[in-house]
Amino acid sequence: MKQEQRLIKKYLAGNCTEEEQKAAMKILSQPGSSSLLDEVADEVWNELSDDEKPAIDSEGLYHGIEKELGLTASRSKTSNIKPWLYAACISLLVICTFYFVQKQSVNTPPVPELVVKSMPAGQKSTIILSDGSKIILNSGSKISYPKTFTDTSRIITLEGEAFFDVVKDKTRPFSVVANGVVTTALGTSFNINARGPVCRIALASGKVIINNENDNRKDKNEQYILAPGEALEVNTSAKTTRKFTFDQQSELLWKEGVLYFKNTPLEEIAKRLELWYDVEFQFKSKTGLQKKYTGRFENASLEHVLDNMSYALGFEYFIQGKKVTIINQP
């Protein structure tokens, strides 16, 4: 009986396959089907709360059901069928579905369309968001953001490096999540470099609040506030945090197409050049990797950069396709 009840409920809700519909109609055409409908209607009715139980035009709905099910008019007036229960069964199933959909739409906000943009090595991109904020995405980086922001927040996810120029909106804070570090601002400009375990936030203008969600100690819930010219470096691997002032000219030159190195080890320079020019470095020996170099290059070719560096640091190089081989001299 329980299986038949489930089938009838499914049929009345309009969720049956063609075979299930035929089986349901066969059950409903048999003598004694009225008691089954009674049970189904009672079950549906009991599942509803008082607020969801509607007023029903049972007689009108019953005649409609009679027509739908093909019941003949010769049925005895003294029949023990309860017309209002049939009507209630149909009506309540429809209304249950309506209430469910309505509640889902109220309790579950619509999921906004997500935009994902990735920049391969050797390329950069400028992105304008729906609120007018601007993002300059560096090589080898990726961001995701809603196509249209909600009325209460603006949230971006970053992998790699990007510069953010945020339009001020007091009702919608602008947050960037990178390596578990959340940087929040109303209207400001800042740079985030989140490559590997280190996340570095450098503030150019305005003010930001930074929360490190990687720090899960119960007694630790510290926020960091930066002023222009200040930076915060969070090492999620070593679990260290360092706040300091930075040189805005050198820190933010990348977005202007300028390569800038200041006492930078050759090994670190090679990693940056790999992203900048979409090449791969290979060192014939490990000696000389910690040699440091200072230089500035604006829209320069890879050969020009390596020519200057090789003379200063004493190495030779060969370029074959996208592979650069460095031979350090004693």
Rank of each mutant, 00 (worst) to 15 (best):
M119S: 11
D51P: 00
A231R: 02
V116S: 12
A194E: 05
G229I: 11
S310V: 00
M25W: 08
F318K: 14
L71Y: 15
K117V: 15
F261N: 06
L69D: 07
L252Q: 09
S105I: 05
F100Q: 07
G60P: 04
E18N: 08
S250P: 05
E19W: 01
I143T: 07
N263M: 09
I143C: 07
T188H: 06
P31N: 14
A202M: 15
K53L: 07
T287S: 14
I8S: 02
E268N: 11
I135T: 02
T183D: 01
L306S: 00
T264A: 11
G132D: 07
V279M: 10
A55V: 09
G288Y: 01
Q249V: 14
D57A: 10
I8A: 03
G14D: 08
N211P: 02
K170I: 13
F149K: 05
E316D: 03
F164A: 04
I155K: 05
Q102W: 08
F164G: 01
Q249W: 04
L313T: 02
V116T: 14
K168M: 05
D278P: 04
R6W: 06
D50G: 03
K292Y: 03
E19F: 00
F261S: 09
V94Y: 11
L69I: 12
K82W: 03
I209S: 14
T240M: 03
T184Y: 00
S118R: 10
S58N: 04
N179I: 01
E268C: 05
I27D: 10
I136T: 13
L61N: 07
G180R: 02
D169A: 10
C199T: 15
I90K: 05
I128P: 01
T240N: 04
L306D: 00
K207E: 13
I27Q: 09
D57Q: 09
K147M: 09
G14A: 06
Q30P: 01
K262N: 14
I269G: 10
L302G: 00
I156A: 01
G229S: 09
D57I: 05
Y260T: 14
E19H: 02
N191S: 12
E4F: 01
I65W: 15
G32P: 04
V198R: 09
I269Y: 11
T245K: 14
L69H: 09
N328C: 14
L275H: 13
Y224C: 04
P83C: 03
D278L: 05
V115H: 04
D165W: 06
F149L: 04
G180W: 00
L36H: 11
L92T: 08
D50K: 09
F318W: 04
K170Y: 09
S74F: 12
G60N: 13
K218G: 11
E159P: 00
A227G: 02
Y224G: 04
Q329Y: 14
N191D: 15
G295C: 14
V279E: 12
F100D: 06
R6V: 10
V101L: 11
I95Q: 10
S76H: 09
E213R: 13
L48Y: 03
L37P: 02
N46C: 07
Y293C: 04
S250C: 06
S250Q: 12
